[in-house]
Structure formats: C-alpha cells, structure tokens
Design a protein around this nucleic acid. Structure first.
Lengths: 131, 131
DNA sequence: TCAACTGTTACGATGCGTAAATGTGC
DNA sequence: AGCACATTTACGCATCGTAACAGTTG
C-alpha cells in the first residue's frame, strides 16, 4: 500500500502554485519529482508537496530562489542521518544565518504592511470626500 | 522666495528610492520633474517628493506601475479644479475601485506576513534543535 | 477515441541593477 | 580646475506568464 503519486496539476492545486512555477523551481534545483511516468509525466509524493508548501511560506520573506535552494540544502543535510558531523555543523550555521535574516525581513514586511494600510486608508478618504 | 529645487539625488535620498527607480517612474509617466536645468539636470520641487512618497507607500500593495499611473491620473483629475463633472465622476469611480482592491491586497499582505512569521519561527526551531 | 492533462521550447513582461562613456554644477 | 553629481544608452537578471505544438493518460 504505497502512497499514491500525484501529477503536477494536483500538486499545483494542492499548494497554490502554477505549473510553470513548479517546473521553474525544479529547474532551479529546489525539488525533484519522486519519479517520472513512462510517458514522461512528473509524479510527486507527499514529501514534495510539503517541500513546496515550505517554499511557498518562504517566498513572502523575499528570498531569491538561489537562497531558498541553499536553505533547503542545509535543511536536507540536517535531516540526513548519514551526514558527517562537520557537514551538520556547517548546515546548522547556515540555518542560523537564515534565521537571523528572517527576523529582519519580517520587520520589513511589517513596515510594508503599515505603509499599505496607511495608503489604503488615505485612498478611502480621497475616494469618498467631495472636493 | 520661491521653493528651492532639488536634484534627483536629493529626491532619491529623501524618499528612499534609487536614481534608477525615479527615472524609471518618470519614463512610465508617473511623475515629471518640475523643470530641467540648462544643462539638462532634472529639478524637483516638494510636490514631486510627496508624489514619490505616495508611490512608495503604494508599492507594498503590489500594484503594477501601470496601475499606479492610472490611480495617480485619477487622483490628479480630482484635484484639477478645471476638470469637467463627467471626468470627476469617472475619476471618483476609478479611485473607488482601487480602494476596494486595496483592501484585498492588505489582506493578502497580512496572510503573507503570517506565513513569514510561521516560517521564521519554524526555522528558529530547526536551527537550534539538535537532531 | 476523446477530453483533459502534461511535455518541451521559447519569446515576452516587469522592475529595476549596473556599467560605460560623457557632460554639468559649484 | 576638480570633484561630485548628473545625463543617456544599453545590456542583464529574476520570476515567472503565455503561447505553440506535440505527446500521454485513463
């Protein structure tokens, strides 16, 4: 009773990304399908769906795809029970740097949200006032 | 005692945009400098600085430059005392649509911020736990 | 067999960054 | 005269959207 494999459209729907984006992420090395069908269709399992969900939560922080790739690689290393101690140490350091960077970016996002609300309110006023 | 005019660098510093961006917005029709110097330098007054600040607050909402242009044009129409009643009506309608769209986008931003915080927290955990 | 899905390839748009070569302002 | 500042032009990049055309799946 192995897990049923999903086609790219199912995955895209489940995660909320376009087919194009999923293929693009694959091309950039962020994730690979579990396997391909005989005819060449990409087939995914839940692992990849989760990975895409993670990527989607990462995106608002404004990381470039290349940065996301590095982060995912470090995370993979930490989860790989066969990784050497040195590799794990380096990976943990990488994650630490990203975590610090994340806090900055969250503050940026908060600032932008404040801007956005300010603007939205201002626009409401202008649209309804009668000059 | 007319207002002192600013060069593009002063404006960029004041608003927090790059020279490139200011010129790009000009090219896209979002704002024109008050005038040019004899040698061709762009010269701005406070009006344009304010306009750029508005644009900067607009940006986090994710409007395309072309949309921002439409919005600014509508706003300009409403402030133009010489505009016809029909023009004012249309402009007000446009602003109303943008105002509605703004609310959606603010909600999107809030959602993204939530995602970002969630991810940041998760990353903190992973970086500090010892698997 | 048919509809719905997927494949690859490639060109296009957006919003600037960046550099080159040159001119302007004080 | 010198030095910071500005000009235009142009190429580049990231992140996909979109279309074209062909093949696959059930």
């Amino acid at each position: 009773m192995s897990e049923p494999l999903l086609q790219i459209g199912d995955v895209a729907d489940a995660v909320g990304l376009s087919l194009r984006t999923v293929r693009y992420y694959e091309q950039m090395g962020l994730l690979q399908p579990e396997r391909r069908s005989e005819g060449g269709f990409r087939l995914y399992s839940q692992v990849q769906v989760d990975r895409l969900r993670l990527i989607k939560r990462m995106k608002p922080l404004g990381f470039h795809v290349e940065e996301m790739r590095q982060l995912l690689v470090a995370r993979d290393t930490l989860r790989d029970t066969g990784a050497t101690a040195a590799a794990r140490k380096a990976a943990r350091a990488t994650l630490g740097e990203f975590a610090a960077s994340c806090e900055d970016r969250v503050r940026d996002l908060e600032q932008k949200l404040a801007y956005a609300r300010e603007f939205a309110g201002q626009l409401q006023d202008e649209a309804h006032s009668a000059p």
